[in-house]
Design a protein around this nucleic acid. Structure first.
Lengths: 233, 233
DNA sequence: CGAGCCATTCTGGTATGACCAAAATGACGC
DNA sequence: GCGTCATTTTGGTCATACCAGAATGGCTCG
């Protein structure tokens, strides 16, 4: 439309994005069929198709191979997923894995500080519960792995910032390739449990410096493990 | 190829991504023409075209409208750009803008701490230089805006983590819509200059707590300004 | 009457072939 | 040697056709 006579598929993308954001579609249901859309926008299927692809990589819809694209409410999750597609291709360079992990340390170190300063009763309760779950799973490495992540996720939750849990998920997802290839040894579990305990203790003591140190020690130790497993990095 | 007979365009995407990552293409030059690619992969142009679109949204190539797609070495920059496409559509909700900004505060607060603890001569020099640039621009709001960003960018650099500058760029880019609409008053410049000075002073004193407080005060004040400008949020 | 099965329809995935307009290219002339 | 213009390339869009997997609705059987 219009005088500038610009691009083409972009218009469709823009319109649909707008529509999705406004919640014009049922939260988890399907986008109209491509044929309908091409009629509505007065373009060829080629264009509609391209638009759908774009929406998909923008994380606004879930486009599984042979299925109708499913709309997906925008949120940090979607953003993280979109970024994930790129980050994946970037973690082949060990140096970048390290850099990414370092940002995680930075973030969690601050989260630990903040938790020490402002964790309320409920937060403390959650942390204790997570720690207990850790303890219960020391002999089940698979389960320990999960509860381990769980413990950290509490830290990402205490701030109340909705972006942080998504960021945590990003870290675990993106760094998983390295971690999952690592042997799960019971000794490691015990060690991690001790580290978590130290972190929680520092938080209980309302000592941000100690909490930060404990957190950093924990993650740097974890990194050392990875490094040891993979040699390089 | 092969027995499973899977998707289609994905194969092209994967191959090209691999090729790009290996640096098979000149760092800033063009991808082969679609026609060549379709021949090479033995598929229709439709598929090639889709692959190109995907590569583009993955940030591995720069696909300006009527031009040959230009390969772009993968890096955090590319990841940030990819995420940007989504984040943009997400900053319509004021609540999310705040959440994003809060993560920035979190990150920079820790960077300030780290700078206080470990900034070396060169870092200090850069900070002082950036501050001087600030001071020289107090009466030129446009220029001050730039030097303001510059000052913060030094903080993101001191860690030596290559991901952080990209993250900084992400923050400034994504939050720019809010900031750029804000009136640029000379009083604000002076105020920000003072805040920067306080941050640097704390760093020079090697006092992480003071640096963090100064940084937080500065950013929270900036947020208050935005909030005042836009009412809601 | 309800549950499971099957044929029909719908819908996304791919392939062709054609045409346009903007870019890139190269020949040409100043 | 350099600016200009015609030619070729190349991306953007369209129309059409066909396939195979999903979804759907009806039919049959228990």
């Amino acid at each position: 439309m219009g005088p500038p006579g610009g691009r083409a598929a972009d218009h469709v993308v823009k319109t649909l994005e707008e529509r999705i954001r406004r919640g014009a579609f049922a939260d988890r249901d399907a986008l109209p069929p491509e044929r309908d859309l091409m009629e509505e926008f007065g373009t060829s299927r080629t264009v509609v198709r391209e638009a759908v692809r774009v929406l998909s990589s923008h994380g606004l819809i879930d486009a599984k191979p042979r299925h109708r694209p499913v709309v997906r409410q925008v949120g940090f999750e979607a953003a993280i997923d979109a970024a994930g597609a790129v980050v994946t291709h970037l973690l082949h360079k060990p140096r970048d894995v390290k850099n990414l992990f370092d940002t995680r340390i930075l973030v969690e170190a601050m989260l630990a500080r903040q938790a020490a300063l402002s964790a309320d009763r409920e937060d403390i309760f959650d942390l204790k519960a997570a720690l207990a779950a850790n303890a219960a799973a020391v002999h089940d490495s698979e389960m320990f792995y999960k509860t381990d992540i769980q413990f950290h996720s509490v830290l990402y939750r205490v701030s109340g910032n909705e972006a942080l849990p998504a960021i945590h998920r990003a870290y675990t997802t993106w760094l998983a390739p390295q971690w999952s290839k690592m042997p799960r040894l019971p000794e490691r579990n015990a060690q991690n449990l001790a580290a978590h305990t130290a972190i929680l203790d520092a938080i209980l003591l309302r000592d941000p410096d100690a909490a930060e140190v404990a957190l950093r020690t924990h993650l740097e130790d974890a990194w050392a493990q990875v490094r040891q497993t993979f040699g390089d990095l």
